[in-house]
């Protein structure tokens, strides 16, 4: 047995003092972890909150100056803009409903009947459309939905109709079709995410009890998946009101939503009005998220520990 030679508790450092200064425990490097937080605060939180301030500024010819006026809000609520805004909300709500009816059953099917290992792969199929530019996807609907488009050709060819249907595009229906095509995958994702926390035997128990599919869906599955459905609903609803591309490309001349209104206000150099509309959108989003959180703890979706 040998008497050990000790190094006196301290080890010959493998790093230099300089590298310690940058990357060591107490080095400058540890502040790097706050960088994303700082970035988000500086370029996301602050500008989004400032919309509230800018919306009450006074409009000048090319810019705005500090002040306190509700002129922009009066302008928004007291004009056709508000009616357009409400119409956009209605059309957006219809899109949410259609996306739910078409998309949610897919999430249920994948969770209940697809082998556990293949579930994520099946869900990932719905990411494919997102990999294509949103603008291109929406523009590409034009030759499909038009009077002489692929859809009408197919319908006439199959003998279902004699004359082309012109309601598919440049109408409110066109906007709904565009929104559903763009946002349906969110319903599938969020629905599935929420149901991942539902053990699979639940579906079998329902079968054993002999409840029919609709009752199972209404009484058991929808309540369990509620946080996911709600998250998708808020997402689709807000984007339906806010993204100007869809009404711009697929809606008729009168198709206007909050995004279009903001864009027009900026073109007209009416910055307080643009910011007022942005602030209204922000408030609606926050309100919906708060209500959703109050109804069903939305953090359940994000925090695996709470599942």
């Amino acid at each position: 047995m040998s008497q050990p030679t000790t190094t006196g508790g301290r080890r010959q450092p493998a790093s230099s003092p300089l590298s310690d200064l940058l990357t060591g425990e107490r080095g400058l490097g540890r502040y790097a972890f706050y960088l994303p937080l700082a970035f988000l605060i500086a370029f996301f939180v602050v500008p989004m909150l400032l919309t509230l301030v800018w919306s009450v500024f006074e409009r000048t010819n090319f810019w705005m100056e500090p002040g306190f006026t509700f002129g922009a809000y009066a302008d928004f609520f007291g004009s056709a803009r508000f009616e357009n805004f409400l119409r956009a909300m209605k059309s957006s709500a219809i899109s949410v409903l259609v996306a739910f009816v078409l998309g949610f059953p897919i999430a249920v099917f994948v969770r209940s009947s697809v082998p556990e290992k293949a579930q994520h792969k099946a869900i990932l199929l719905f990411i494919l459309p997102f990999m294509i530019s949103e603008v291109i996807r929406i523009f590409a609907l034009r030759p499909i939905l038009g009077r002489h488009g692929v859809l009408n050709d197919a319908l006439i060819g199959s003998g279902l109709i004699d004359d082309p249907i012109s309601i598919f595009i440049y109408t409110p229906t066109g906007v709904v079709i565009g929104e559903v095509m763009s946002y349906l995958p969110f319903m599938v994702f969020c629905g599935f995410l929420a149901m991942e926390s539902v053990p699979r035997y639940i579906f079998e128990v329902c079968d054993d009890l002999g409840s029919d599919t609709l009752t199972t869906l209404r009484r058991v599955i929808v309540p369990l998946a509620a946080p996911g459905i709600l998250a998708a609903t808020i997402f689709i609803f807000i984007n339906g009101i806010g993204v100007f591309l869809i009404p711009d490309i697929l809606g008729g001349p009168g198709a206007v939503n909050a995004g279009t209104l903001v864009l027009n206000a900026i073109s007209a150099l009416d910055f307080p009005l643009a910011m007022a509309i942005a602030a209204i959108m922000l408030v609606i989003l926050m309100a919906l998220l708060l209500i959703g959180h109050w109804l069903f703890d939305l953090t359940k979706l994000l925090d695996p520990a709470k599942r």
């Binding site: 807000i238 806010g242 993204v243 903001v262 864009l263 959108m281």
Partner: peptide, 9 residues
């Protein structure tokens, strides 16, 4: 947050 709203802000 919709792209255009955030971009405008």
């Amino acid at each position: 947050i919709p792209a255009d709203i955030m971009a405008a802000a």
